[in-house]
């Protein structure tokens, strides 16, 4: 009986009530009643096996779900417990006074502070205003980076001339830390909104361009050749084959870019900002208001996470074939 993938060996250690039976061809025993070495299981053991089987989903096993990449499968329940565990740990060490509130305020204090700054504000603006300022910068830069980066990356991937022109430029600035060129951006663009957007935009541009370019070169040569031999023009090959084929990589690049954007946001808001979640955190840290610092960090983390989930959802909708073919 191999139809059960459950730990039969452990169950077969249980007290036996029946002697060994041979599986009969005419009358196949129900899958559950014998253990791997052919011995009949006690009713109690059968019940356990049945319950354990119920825990597993009844859907057909996808190829590679078990004997595929190690670690495939659903981890959401584990993630939930892990999250609760760490919040619990946080509450424990703070509420018992093991860690002083100056270093780590308790979750309750942080939540209370969040409510407080939502209503009354902190350093000159409410939480909503700080958030709106930051989200405007992030998503404004993101839209700009996608609008410019995706066509540019595709063009670099598709054209020798474009590659020649832009490759050195992008490869040169890409590894530079945004803080290194921040002064330059300020000298050029001043200290108002445009320099902040520019800084975040620059941080986001490189991953978008590079992933679009990688996406172009990941398109299978046979798909391109077949398109040509069905009469496609060069332009049609780009719009009908390459753009679609590059989409999975482009979406990955967009996810990475948003991550870079959050990283750069605080740097951008260091300079002459009056609003922004990064500014709020910096300002709070100067006055050692740790609960605002933590509140800001949690908010950034949660928003970034939610956006990433949205992107992943879009991935399953837009490129359901990713990795399938």
């Amino acid at each position: 009986m191999t139809s059960n993938s459950l730990p039969m060996d452990a169950l077969s250690e249980m007290p036996e009530s029946a002697e060994a039976t041979k599986p009969s061809i005419n009358k196949p025993a129900p899958a559950v009643t014998t253990s791997s070495n052919g011995r009949e299981l006690t009713p109690f053991a059968q019940m356990i096996v049945r319950q354990l089987n119920k825990l597993q989903k009844g859907s057909p096993v996808a190829s590679g779900e078990y004997y595929g990449q190690p670690g495939a499968g659903d981890s959401r329940i584990i993630a939930l417990f892990s999250t609760l565990f760490f919040i619990g740990l946080w509450a424990l060490v703070t509420e018992t006074g093991m860690v002083r509130p100056l270093f780590l305020p308790s979750p309750v204090d942080v939540v209370a502070r969040m409510v407080d700054i939502t209503l009354d504000g902190f350093s000159g603006a409410t939480l909503g205003q700080h958030l709106a300022a930051s989200l405007g910068r992030i998503f404004g830069s993101f839209a700009l980076a996608c609008l410019i980066g995706i066509p540019l990356g595709v063009a670099i991937g598709c054209s020798r001339v474009m590659r020649g022109i832009f490759d050195p430029l992008i490869e040169f600035y890409r590894p530079l830390p945004p803080l290194a060129y921040l002064p330059l951006v300020i000298i050029w663009m001043g200290i108002d909104e445009s320099s902040k957007i520019m800084l975040i935009f620059l941080a986001m541009l490189a991953p978008v361009v590079l992933s679009a370019r990688a996406g172009v070169s990941s398109v299978k040569i046979e798909q391109i050749q077949v398109a040509y031999s069905m009469g496609a023009s060069r332009r049609q090959v780009v719009t009908q084959v390459i753009l679609h084929g590059a989409l999975p990589d482009i979406l990955t690049g967009m996810r990475i870019a948003i991550g870079f954007g959050w990283t750069t946001l605080v740097a951008a808001e260091m300079v002459a900002a009056e609003r922004g979640i990064g500014f709020m955190v910096l300002n709070a840290s100067e006055f050692l208001v740790t609960d605002v610092v933590i509140a800001g960090i949690v908010i950034i983390g949660v928003i970034a996470y939610l956006f990433d989930m949205l992107m992943r959802y879009m991935e399953t909708k837009l490129v359901p074939w990713k990795g399938q073919i």
Binding site: V241, G245, L247
Partner: peptide, 9 residues
């Protein structure tokens, strides 16, 4: 082709 070159999208 020997191996199909269909467009998965």
């Amino acid at each position: 082709f020997q191996k199909h070159a269909l467009l998965p999208w």
